[in-house]
Design a protein around this nucleic acid. Structure first.
Lengths: 186, 186
DNA sequence: GTCTATAAGCTGATAGAC
DNA sequence: GTCTATCAGCTTATAGAC
């Protein structure tokens, strides 16, 4: 593990407990086991460190969602794969999930363009588009479908993180059935 | 408007653009048109100021949701009233909504107990319970229903704030129909 | 209650040796 | 690339006059 990775890992851990501004760079360096100056060698400002961490986590999620996705044929299968994987990702990576939510609801997100935000997630939009044109999804704005889906998935992850004993395959089944009923054209 | 209210108003405005730690108390006082010391006369620490603001906003939302709710009879009517009002509240109070989201996803929320978080929203849980027992809602954990609903409503508000021209009565109709289909027992 | 003045402590970032 | 030493500026909070 490179020093750069150690710094990002330490930052993630501290950010979710103390917040962005509440975490001094000195503390990040200490937690990462590197000198203060080393941090600024890799990330010239604190803000750059934060956005690189965000891009990192976003990439990690999109890779996770994309994995083996081409094995699914119908819109429903693809949607199910994405939704359940997303929830799994949240449960398996609670720190990354929390950071993602924190960042998405922080003023930092404004410094990132909408294109950059949607980058690596084009495949999700394509699936929604495909579903609308083949008639399996209701015919409304694809961004609206994504917004609702995204919000509901966050809700499912929040619940499962709060009550871990209730999380199992059944939970994923039930959860997806609820999501699907809200967007399916039936 | 009291000085105390002016301080809270200024804090809300600054927090959503600069973040909690990114907003100095001196700036809040200046924006509110009061002296630095006056701020600490009303709120002995910055943290207390932040949580009081949160309780304030939460109360504002719950009052908004509760208004004339007893005119609704069925579970569906009550649910619809709450969901559409919640979305309206978000559109009419974008600053409060943004602050609420920011706070809910910040480390500050951890200093507040779950009971305190759910306070003033007991009526929503009661409606869900009622719906489950009278068979109009699917029979799953009420906290799960709330989590999904809450997430999806946030998604609907986010979308409407981003594309204000798409927000109208039709939007609320379509939005609620989607939410209802996911939780209704049909 | 409201203000001004102030301090102790911390923060992001730099300089320069190795 | 990595470290130590250091600073200039800002931050929360207090003290005390009015």
């Amino acid at each position: 593990m490179t020093k750069s990775d150690k710094i990002l890992e330490a930052a993630l851990k501290l950010f979710i407990t103390d917040g962005f501004h509440g975490t001094p760079t000195s503390k990040i360096a200490k937690e990462a086991g590197v000198a203060n100056g080393t941090l600024f060698h890799y990330f010239s400002t604190k803000e750059i460190l934060i956005s690189e961490l965000y891009l990192n986590v976003k990439k990690h999620l999109s890779n996770y969602l994309n994995h083996n996705l081409d094995m699914c044929k119908t819109t429903r299968e693809k949607s199910k794969a994405i939704c359940t994987k997303w929830i799994r990702w949240g449960i398996e990576n609670p720190d990354k999930f929390t950071f993602f939510q924190q960042f998405a609801n922080s003023p930092f997100i404004n410094s990132i363009s909408r294109e950059e935000g949607a980058k690596n997630f084009e495949f999700a939009f394509e699936i929604i588009e495909e579903g609308i044109s083949n008639g399996s999804l209701i015919d409304i704005d694809k961004y609206l479908i994504i917004s609702i889906l995204f919000g509901a998935i966050n809700g499912l992850i929040h619940f499962a993180l709060e009550f871990p004993e209730k999380f199992d395959d059944d939970y994923l089944e039930t959860g997806f059935r609820m999501l699907w009923r809200s967007i399916a054209n039936i």
